[in-house]
């Protein structure tokens, strides 16, 4: 599972990421973007950039490869086993959906198979969640704050996970795609798993 969190400036960043995903991309990828209840068009805006199917998550929807999932506005998104689940719990730090809430559940469920990506944003949501993904052996990726429309969120994420892979936006998708095709360099992977015997199915 690739979990991507974005806030201020996120539309452009998410479109850039969606744009680069090849049609055969098979890792489920989920976007959590802060937005108001009324902003219903985000799904369409993202769908315009990719041949993968973009869907706004409904409660208990099964998680499948080949899809780009989008957190619906005004709900928290979580993963529960092999499904998504939603909640209307209070906003966390003024946000619903909260990136932290989603990342924490991804960390719990996917452990080392989780990839957390923190993009542009003007608050500190996502930092704690990314820390938990890293703590469970998952991979932490942060947009290079110098290339972010708003650097606050990526900076906070880097403070929480100083070892996170830092990339400018234009290299983000190629990197995520390399994870899918197994081209990620072994050193990087060893570093985060502490293992030496690289075995890939």
């Amino acid at each position: 599972m690739i979990a991507v969190g974005a806030s201020w400036g996120g539309l452009k960043a998410l479109r850039a990421i969606a744009h680069g995903l090849p049609a055969h991309f098979r890792v489920p990828i989920t976007f959590v973007q802060h937005r108001s209840k009324e902003s219903a068009a985000l799904r369409e805006l993202l769908q315009d950039c990719t041949s993968l199917i973009v869907c706004e998550v409904e409660d208990k929807q099964p998680i499948m490869g080949g899809y780009v999932y989008l957190a619906p506005p005004d709900y928290h998104l979580l993963v529960d086993g092999d499904e998504f689940s939603l909640s209307v719990d209070e906003p966390v730090r003024y946000s619903r959906p909260s990136i932290d809430v989603f990342f924490e559940s991804v960390a719990e469920r996917f452990g080392p198979a989780a990839v957390g990506v923190v993009l542009t944003g003007a608050n500190e949501d996502g930092a704690e969640g990314l820390r938990q993904i890293a703590a469970r052996g998952g991979l932490a990726v942060v947009q290079d704050p110098r290339t972010a429309e708003s650097p606050i969120m990526p900076r906070a994420a880097l403070r929480a996970v100083p070892t996170a892979q830092t990339l400018p936006l234009e290299r983000m998708t190629p990197y995520l795609v390399s994870l899918d095709t197994g081209e990620e360099n072994e050193q990087g992977r060893r570093k985060r798993t502490g293992g030496t015997d690289e075995v890939r199915a």
């Binding site: 452990g111 293992g195 030496t196 690289e198």
Partner: peptide
């Protein structure tokens, strides 16, 4: 469609 980020033995132990 299949598991792509497949955990290694060490991942699982971790």
């Amino acid at each position: 469609a299949e598991a792509i980020v497949t955990p290694t033995v060490t991942d699982i132990a971790a």
